[in-house]
Amino acid sequence: MEGMILSEDTTRRGGLKPFEVSLKETNLYPLRATGVVVLQVNVGRVCNQSCRHCHVEAGPQRKEIMSREVMEMCLDVVRRLNLPMVDITGGAPEMNPHYRWFVEELNSTGAQIKTRTNLTILTEAGYEDMPEFFARNRIEVIGSLPYYLESTTDRQRGEGIFKKSIDALRRLNSIGYGIDGTGLVLNLVYNPCGAYLPPSQGSIEADFKRELKRRYGVSFNNLFTLTNMPVGRFLNFLRGSNNLIPYLRRLQESFNPVAAENVMCREMVSVAWDGSLYDCDFNQMLGLKCNHGAPNHLRDFDYERIVNRKIVTGIHCYGCTAGSGSSCTGAVA
């Protein structure tokens, strides 16, 4: 477990303040959920890419994939509780063999659907018609594009990824995604290419819009800035490059109580490929299931015990509370 999770020893050696202490100092302890607005479903860890920062450590070799039975349990929860939003993530969610069926079934519940895509999968054989499938189901597309420069993006995500991503964005634009007036929403996700915090969302979004339009003729709706979490491959990078302690200190010294108050875990539940429940996708990758009396599997999903649950926190949580904060929909403060 030491390899995956930041231990108390790391906290001590780094002279770091436990996250729970920062919460107590700002009257936010214990951090509790305030509702269930979003069911985030991680449909598997298989991916056509192996990005250097990926907290899921996703890749072509991964075997974890959500079965149709677990998806049916998700659908049952969404229907039963009339949940307003479902956020599908992975891996590359499109590579789950039941993905299209799942999206269509979700659509029939009336929930708003968001799907996260690495963009390049849309250029692979067998997935070329995916943009039309997205559009038919009127789902919001959230594409990963860490930067508008090829060299920066490829350094993080692999050689050739940027060009493929631009091809995919042009395809999405060509059917109306990211184009004003179509109602087809295309949002992009930025994350830093290294051990530093993201810039202000507004300023970098303006850069992305200007440069992607000028250089590639690409349009999109909103840019979400995400902080790299000290989890998975990014944690390995931090350790291997001796950046771990300085980066954790940077996160801790940037603790923002407003961001902490608005962290995404307070309004969402994260479902793993096997139906386990977590407070967020990061806790999922760390194996930290919902706890403190809340159910930790879909089969036991009980709204009353979920809705006000105490969130499972750790030193990695500073990643979501630093500066302007970080969530699956970008900055929160």
């Binding site: 930067y147 420069l149 060299s151 920066t152 830093p192 290294g194 530093y196 915090l197 993201p198 810039p199 202000s200 300023s203 970098i204 850069d207």
Partner: peptide
């Protein structure tokens, strides 16, 4: 260097 990156500047 860190501040420039965190303010959104790039290597160019």
């Amino acid at each position: 260097t860190k501040a420039s990156l965190e303010k959104g500047a790039n290597m160019e």
